[in-house]
Nucleic acid binder design. Structure first.
Lengths: 226, 226
DNA sequence: ATTATCTATAGATCTATAGATAATGC
DNA sequence: ATTATCTATAGATCTATAGATAATGC
């Protein structure tokens, strides 16, 4: 594997595990056992590394959220979309954590991310439309559908932050992808009132599979300083 | 005003305007025209400043979310709670932006924030209960109510991040409290399907008052680097 | 010849403290 | 006497580059 690709891969790994803020170009170079000079030969700075990683993330999610136009949507489709989006979030989980800062630092990223969000919102709205076509949920007027889509998007993208800040008791307790996917429970909560009777039971039992287990919620965590 | 209080006040101001990550102890001291040494005489480090600011924030929100037990809830009450919570968010808006990092750095803060979130969730759930008592929304089973409350909480606390990352086109475009309160539109979206017919129209027109105007959504922002 | 890598380092911060001095409160 | 403040600075990073050297591809 080329050094350039190793830098991207290791950066992603370190960012995900320690947070972008805690990972400098020095750390990345040290982790790969190359010199900082070598890293700067391949990338102008940390922003450039992050921008390329974002483009991979974008490509992945765009691929997942490509909605087939020509057939009605099934419950399995919906499950697939939800699972896929959370898989993507997991693989690039550092990204949303420091998003505001990253966008302030890189105008290209700000521009691309904004269009990315709009595409995701359009896809979610389209999924709602096709779920109605498939008789799974009630049809909704456009304006309600777009407000709902935005709520779904906010819950998807911020569920991890909730888990890391309010749920787990310790900083070191690392989250699993399984816990992240409990976000699906929260997303399906939004759909409940719109479910058609024929599918209600099925969706409710699907939702039940993602119910948060409240693990990691141990009380009595020590308040150790430093 | 005592120097100690000035430090807290100026720190909050700088954090809100520039983000906690971009504000060092040096910046705070320079802004106040005092020496860094003087700042360190009053506070052990930046974490301690942030912890005290959090405690103010916590106090404010706890005060707002103190639900009177002995009378039914009106629409005006609900509006007041929503307005107040967003006012609090606005005054301490730096806080949620770098939350994960801050909690990783300070175990006291992690512990206190976790309990703070749980209190807020309980208050939201209680508001839903009393809205049902007041005949404004349908009564909900406890498990649905708590999942709904969590969704409301995520939307409230992350609406600003959405605005700053996906909505406004430029980094410098500063948000107004008016735009922040458009989050109320999104929160009320969640309530729609549960509204009792007698209040449906009233709530819908209340919601309409917060509808996002899509200002700041100008296309064609230059992709200027640096 | 070109591409990849390393060594060494300048320059810019930032945090936090020691020690001196000034201001204030009995 | 105690509290508040300043000056000066050590020590730790981090970013980014210059310039030398090694490896690779015709």
């Amino acid at each position: 594997m080329k050094t350039r690709d190793k830098i991207l891969l290791s950066s992603l790994e370190l960012f995900n595990e320690q947070g972008e803020r805690n990972v400098t170009t020095n750390h990345i170079a040290a982790y790969l056992a190359i010199s900082p000079g070598n890293l700067y030969y391949h990338f102008r700075n940390k922003s450039d590394i992050i921008y390329e990683i974002f483009q991979e993330y974008e490509k992945l999610v765009d691929f997942y959220l490509d909605i087939p136009e020509n057939r009605p949507m099934t419950l399995d489709d919906m499950t697939f979309y939800l699972e896929s989006v959370f898989d993507g979030l997991w693989s690039y989980r550092f990204f949303h954590r420091d998003l505001e800062y990253l966008l302030d630092r890189d105008q290209r990223l700000r521009h691309d991310y904004r269009e990315f969000t709009n595409r995701c919102l359009a896809s979610i709205s389209c999924i709602f439309e096709k779920l109605a076509d498939g008789g799974i949920i009630e049809p909704q007027p456009e304006s309600l559908r777009s407000a709902m889509s935005l709520n779904v998007w906010m819950i998807i993208t911020n569920w991890m932050a909730y888990l890391k800040t309010a749920h787990v008791a310790t900083a070191s307790a690392s989250l699993t992808i399984r816990e992240l996917k409990q976000g699906i429970y929260q997303v399906l909560t939004l759909e409940i009132p719109y479910l058609m009777p024929a599918y209600r039971e099925q969706v409710m039992s699907l939702r039940e599979q993602y119910r948060p287990t409240m693990s990691g919620h141990e009380e009595g965590a020590e308040m150790k300083e430093g």
